[in-house]
């Protein structure tokens, strides 16, 4: 059973299927131990967006208000994609390296643990 319904074989409308986003896909990004940003954020991006654009423009626009942001050593960032360790290549697109619709990218910045080390 996938739903308790009075109608046999009831199926629901998939409200967030990829086609509804006009050629873009949803990508979520969270910065570990920086809860000044209360939750991960959601972007709508073309699947062929290069990872470099995600980092240099999109992530920077979202998180640069944090004092730790300027301190990030981008070579040392530890990435996760949908909870698996991830080694992104800057020149490859999102979709080429498995960042598909409604994927979660997490970035950890060891040594930078938020405001006064509080995880904020």
């Amino acid at each position: 059973m996938t739903v308790a319904a009075i109608t046999p074989d009831y199926t629901g409308e998939r409200r967030d299927r990829l086609e509804n986003f006009h050629g873009n896909q949803i990508v979520y990004v969270g910065w570990d131990q920086h809860l000044m940003f209360c939750s991960p954020v959601a972007f709508t991006l073309a699947p062929d967006t290069p990872f470099s654009t995600l980092v240099d423009e999109v992530i920077s626009g979202a998180f640069s208000q944090h004092p730790d942001f300027a301190e990030i050593d981008w070579g040392k960032v530890q990435w996760h994609l949908n909870n698996q360790p991830f080694a992104p290549e800057r020149d490859k697109s999102l979709i080429e390296q498995g960042v598909d619709h409604k994927s979660i990218i997490r970035m950890a910045t060891p040594g930078l643990d938020g405001i006064k080390g509080s995880g904020s």
């Binding site: 979520y28 969270g30 570990d32 131990q33 809860l35 209360c38 939750s39 991960p40 954020v41 959601a42 972007f43 626009g61 979202a62 208000q65 909870n83 979660i104 997490r106 938020g114 509080s118 995880g119 904020s120």
Partner: peptide, 27 residues
């Protein structure tokens, strides 16, 4: 400046953390 990620069920922005590790977002 950016719209939040929401939980599919409760629809609240994903602002809750894992209770074993309260500074880590619960995904």
């Amino acid at each position: 400046p950016t719209l939040p990620m929401l939980c599919q069920t409760c629809q609240i922005p994903m602002g809750f953390t894992d209770m074993e590790d309260p500074t880590s977002t619960s995904y």
